[in-house]
Design a protein around this nucleic acid. Structure first.
Lengths: 234, 234
DNA sequence: CGTCCATTTGATCAGGGTCAAGACGAGTGG
DNA sequence: CCACTCGTCTTGACCCTGATCAAATGGACG
């Protein structure tokens, strides 16, 4: 097994402010792992045996209800932590994480969490900051779900995605991984049918360009207006 | 100004595992404050000049959208922290907090947060645990909003409230502070009209007893079934 | 070339929001 | 003590958003 180089993680937000020697010490305990598209990094309800850093790819975090409905909690981008149940005082994962594309992650045994938090206070603080901002995001989402109707919610979801993972192309800003109508529906609490209708309507207005598992936003500003609900309904 | 006694906070979850001397040291920096019903503890968007512990009463945490719609994020019970924006790396409050009844809080200047977290690691850890469990709760709420229809959401909301603040009375388990139909609507993303209709329907079935700014659940188990959606629709 | 998904699109319909009006109570001031 | 007012709650009527049901189309891939 090859040694993991410090440059893999130096400069990533979770490790900000850490001494190089400490990075090495953390890496010495990590295992790098490849996750094929559509494979799970971890599963809801499983014992939280590890926590992860996404090095490359994109991961969908999904909650499944007792009756089988799914909700996409968030997408994880490279450089972000996931599966940090231990940091929340949990012993079990509250959601599943599935690779949206082929991914590479670093995995640390979960029982190391307390040691790490104590030995590398910056790492601990960075993690808690992450948890805090995820709480913010999630509360914002509750407000959206409670007050906005579907069109605005879907617009907001797309804007967040291009903000988080957008890549400039000739078609506009493309969401950088395969995403289906169903996925967008599961992010916004609607159905794939409604998402499909919205996207075709927006495509007719020249706001987006979309295809099979692919969405690009050509007029982000216009979409923003729509998301904020201050737009004359043509 | 009278000295604050250690017994005020000893035994409360945020201070678990702290040495008595440290409790005293924290209390020496605290100011106790009375908040009248309907007064704000702090306001959304204001600079986070302090963080608080609720000693007595009940506080509503509210987010207001740009167009004036309100969403109740959570209710705070005695012994819980609130306004911990600093712990999340924020300099401004993300929501407002309003006293649902006359309240007593302890307030600490916000700039003390980093000192406290460093000097009293148990306090820091307890706080982060709180943040973590609030993240859990909020995500659960997103799932509910995305997958359940109004009746089940309202049922869930009532169950959480009686669980958190229920007091046994002859009418059943009473929510221990004045709560209007409008409030329940703002917790569940619906309208006071729909809440009213649901409550009268449930009252007819003998599940709840409600009045002006008052709700008591007489058949929690039945309501639970309803919340979980496995109930023959009469 | 055939199969499997993702997507589109139409038709229907109901949950629950909106609009409107009143009833009920609690507190206030005369 | 009573009349009045204001805020909460109830209830009916209507209608719209978006879910559901159904079917067809179109790529992608083996």
């Amino acid at each position: 097994m090859s040694r993991l180089d410090r440059s893999l993680i130096a400069g990533l937000p979770p490790f900000e402010g850490m001494a190089p020697a400490d990075l090495d010490r953390m890496l010495a305990q990590a295992r790098s792992q490849r996750i094929a598209k559509d494979e799970a990094v971890f599963e809801q309800e499983d014992a939280a045996h590890a926590f992860f850093l996404l090095l490359d790819g994109h991961v969908r975090v999904i909650k499944t209800t007792p009756d089988g409905q799914q909700v996409i909690v968030r997408y994880i981008s490279p450089g972000e932590l996931l599966g940090i149940a231990h940091a929340l005082g949990r012993t079990t994962y509250p959601a599943s994480a599935v690779a949206a594309v082929d991914c590479v992650v670093l995995a640390w045994p979960g029982h190391l969490w307390p040691e790490f938090a104590a030995a590398f206070p910056n790492f601990g603080a960075n993690t808690y900051k992450t948890v805090g901002s995820r709480l913010q995001d999630t509360q914002t989402r509750v407000v959206e779900m409670a007050t906005e109707q579907v069109e605005r919610r879907v617009a907001h979801a797309l804007l967040r995605l291009i903000d988080q993972t957008g890549r400039k192309t000739e078609d506009g800003i493309l969401i950088d991984f395969p995403i289906s109508r169903q996925d967008i529906a599961e992010m916004t609490g609607t159905t794939l049918h409604t998402v499909s209708r919205l996207l075709t309507a927006w495509e007719d207005q020249g706001l987006v360009k979309s295809g099979r598992q692919k969405v690009a936003v050509t007029e982000p500003h216009h979409l923003q207006l729509l998301a904020e609900g201050r737009l004359p309904k043509s």
